[in-house]
Write a protein that binds this DNA or RNA. Structure first.
Lengths: 251, 251
DNA sequence: CACCATTTTGACGGATCGTCATTTTTTGTC
DNA sequence: GACAAAAAATGACGATCCGTCAAAATGGTG
């Protein structure tokens, strides 16, 4: 009897919870294209209200301000990236091939979610960042840290296996920082600048791939790119690890 | 007589012109800290009006919208960067030392104008970018292109002098893209992420420097970092080329 | 001083964010 | 099912801020 009552109560609460979750998903689903279309100003709370079947107050029950919606959009895709990184890190191969697998994941991620950078760049502007809740900022940081952690783990594996020898003056995190800079900078430039085509770089993604292999050659992470065809590794990772995701886009 | 008249007219016009220039400078001078303080929303046109001794309409005679002010702020610092790059490229030394000099210039630039990135990131958001005038966008592109050109020139010098051999499958622009990615990504991460200190990287600027030398080692741009103390080159460039600028900051 | 051209002014319209008093719905109880 | 209390939803409203434009001020000229 008590059990039944409890059960009943829980079911009701669960249903409520689920409804709230679903509504939140709907809000985000509607907000994303609005943001993609016109950025921070394009995401119009009045228009969002009129497009959804909920009133303003209801939406503000879910998200205390516009910025909270935007950071949640960022978190949604960041979580997808984390999943892709983790999947890539399981690739069977040398430590350097596994780093290449992460690079592949990063590239496929920006191709699958080409608008993610825009969202993240907006969020990182202090004027926006400061209005978001500490809670959601934590979630975002956590995602970032875990992505970094995956890469760091592979660097340490490389050292442990003897493929990589950093010497005594270098810590693995410096290499993570280097790869991260190359990737973040490269994808940002690709996304926001016309100068690349002006420069005559026809396939920027391929060039970026070759650039991080140049960096890895520079620290002599074996086997070097002169010994292994890392383009082929890229193709293999695309197929073997991300075959499913890839059906959606043309690489 | 005609000459005198002309002279007089010209003087009046010149004075007018000068006054307009000066006013424009004042507007920007007042707008910059406001933007730095609170970003896009922090730059408040009403407040700007009340702080300056000019009315709203007058300000809108200079800049047709808020975004035009912001892009002009970006252009102001971009021009300083171009000057620093050009100065650095004249450094006497091997081609690789000259690239290191550009790296030094880039680092000193972000230290001298730590808020520039914020301004540039804001401008690059499509929602802002689209509202700026084609004219000012051209000026900005031009600055960027000339900076890239300086770097490209040194790469080609390196090839010509035999310090660098890219082979037949690589064009110099790919290397420019690589260095640019590393720098842009690295400085962005330094500016907007706490993860670096979390990672245990105590001196991110030094690490970034070492990272681009790793990249340059990877393409075997001679002399390699194992043969030359590029930290010492950095110091020399700071002193010999940028001694004046450096008095303002602590490196 | 009178007249025209140019520049400056700031009140105002319009857009948009977030609030909160009011209304509606849900829950719990007899 | 009827009713009260709690919870949730509503949307009109206040506040803020951008950019405009009719009117006023300024400056040059005969």
């Amino acid at each position: 009897m008590t059990i039944r009552q409890n059960g009943g109560v829980m079911n009701t609460k669960d249903r409520k919870q689920r409804e709230i979750q679903e509504r939140e998903a709907k809000i985000l689903e509607c907000a994303r294209p609005m943001f993609i279309e016109g950025g921070y100003n394009g995401l119009n709370m009045d228009r969002l209200t009129s497009m959804l079947e909920y009133s303003k107050g209801t939406i503000y029950n879910h998200f205390s301000c516009k910025e909270e919606i935007i950071i949640t959009l960022a978190i949604q895709t960041l979580e997808k990236r984390l999943t892709m990184f983790e999947k890539a890190s399981l690739f069977q191969g040398t430590s350097r091939e596994r780093i290449a697998a992460i690079g592949t994941a990063a590239e496929l991620f920006v191709k699958l979610y080409p608008d993610h950078f825009r969202v993240e760049q907006t969020i990182r502007l202090d004027s926006i960042w400061d209005k978001t809740s500490e809670e959601r900022r934590q979630v975002m940081s956590n995602c970032e840290h875990r992505c970094i952690g995956v890469v760091g783990g592979i660097v340490r594996d490389g050292i442990a296996s003897g493929d990589l020898n950093l010497g005594e003056t270098t810590v693995p995190e410096e290499i993570v920082f280097g790869l991260w800079s190359l990737a973040f900078g490269g994808y940002s430039i690709i996304a926001t600048s016309n100068s690349l085509t002006d420069l005559g770089i026809l396939n920027p993604f391929e060039t970026l791939r070759r650039n991080y292999h140049r960096f890895l050659d520079g620290i002599q992470w074996n086997p070097l790119s002169s010994e292994v065809d890392y383009d082929a590794v890229f193709e293999r990772v695309c197929e073997e690890v991300f075959g499913n995701e890839l059906q959606q886009i043309s690489v």
